[in-house]
Design a protein around this nucleic acid. Structure first.
Length: 362
DNA sequence: GACACGTGGGC
DNA sequence: TGCCCAAGTGT
């Protein structure tokens, strides 16, 4: 069935105006006080929407406040060093968001005279601004009736309208965008979009939704049938692959520790870490030889500490932490350097390697 | 369409 | 413990 046809089928006998009124009224009364809701500044809305991608509100709040203090304007962010931006993002995860945001902000400053574009076609070209973020910024900052479909919206609407399509599929997201296009309030698209998300966050939660408190209860098809817990339908993801490493803690005579910068693309791009070698590629016995070839330093393995386990969304690192002593050679590596423990604090580290900090002798 | 891309919290 | 999740995007 074509989407348009499916949309008509779903929307049959659904009172859109009642839905809009109840949702918007509820949002105006019940919305949380959040730092990015102080005003409609497109820059603030933009930063918040990027940070909130796949990330909880409670986690984002302190990062948002710190980020806006360090980079209060588009211009301030455009002029900042990338490393400084990554440091402000340290611990938030999905670090390409930070680099894409800064790139896009630089483009707005250079190509749009520092004004965040209010046209869908223009804002959609910016790096890191996908269909969701486009709709969120345009509706919240510019009051434009554009859909902003995230996980909340799909969950809430799948229940209210009884949609059984798998929300893990991209095609289902398109279906919801078309549904929202039919449903969205043109009077207050900002409260409508935010209301849908707020409802998903506060009432129509993934587990044990609070249907008795729901402003849309009388219109909810899932509640009517008592199947709210069965929706939305979502196919499960596969589990992570394990990747074993040896992580090396190496200090020179001054007590400085060896760190290196990760490649500028891929996992944890441009962040810093302790040298780490993939076990399996290299075994424990040949590790010093491998290390000499890579870094130009002759080392001797000393003490084996604990193994750090770090779970990512798609893989698991198991890092055996080993201290090593320098017995010769000279550091010869593009992206590696010795730093004092104080200096180390200025470098953005992924959480996985922050876990190794405590094994350093200081 | 499928997979890479982080982290911390809840049960 | 392990799995699911939380305001997605890029390739």
């Amino acid at each position: 069935m074509k989407n348009l046809e499916r949309v008509q089928q779903i929307m049959q006998n659904f009172d859109r105006e009642l839905f809009r009124q109840n949702l918007i009224q509820w949002f105006r009364n019940e919305q949380r006080v959040l730092p990015w809701r102080e005003n409609q500044d497109p820059y603030r809305v933009w930063v918040s929407e990027i940070m909130l991608q796949q990330t909880r509100v409670d986690t984002v709040i302190p990062y948002f406040n710190n980020f806006l203090t360090k980079f209060p304007t588009l211009e301030a962010l455009a002029e900042a060093d990338e490393q400084e931006v990554l440091k402000a993002w340290e611990g938030l995860g999905y670090y390409s968001r930070a680099r894409n945001l800064q790139n896009a902000v630089r483009e707005v400053v250079e190509e749009y005279q520092g004004v965040v574009p209010s046209e869908p076609e223009e804002i959609a070209k910016l790096k890191g601004v996908g269909p969701y973020t486009k709709g969120a910024i345009l509706s919240i900052a510019y009051d434009k009736p554009i859909p902003a479909v995230d996980g909340n919206v799909m969950r809430v609407l799948s229940r209210i309208l009884h949609v059984e399509e798998d929300i893990a599929k991209a095609s289902t997201k398109k279906l919801f965008e078309e549904l929202i296009t039919e449903l969205i309030s043109h009077e207050d698209p900002s409260s409508f979009n935010q209301g849908l998300m707020e409802l998903g966050a506060l009432v129509c939660t993934p587990k044990s939704p609070s249907c008795l408190l729901c402003p849309i209860q009388e219109q909810c098809r899932a509640f009517e049938q008592g199947i709210e817990e069965e929706l939305p339908v979502k196919s499960s993801k596969k589990k992570q692959k394990k990747a074993p490493y040896m992580l090396l803690l190496i200090q020179n005579e001054q007590g400085e520790v060896l760190i290196e910068q990760r490649p500028s693309s891929g996992l944890l791009a441009s962040l810093w870490q302790y040298p780490m070698l993939p076990l399996g590629d290299v075994d424990r016995e040949s590790a010093p030889h491998w290390f000499y070839g890579e870094y130009g330093l002759k080392i001797e393995l000393k003490e084996t500490k604990q193994t750090i386990k770090h779970v990512f969304s798609h893989l698991i690192w198991e890092m055996e932490v080993v201290t090593a002593e320098i017995i010769g050679g000279e550091l010869d590596h593009e992206r590696a350097r010795f730093v004092t423990l104080d200096e180390r604090n200025d470098y953005p580290f992924p959480v996985s390697h922050q876990k190794a900090h405590k094994y350093i002798n200081s």
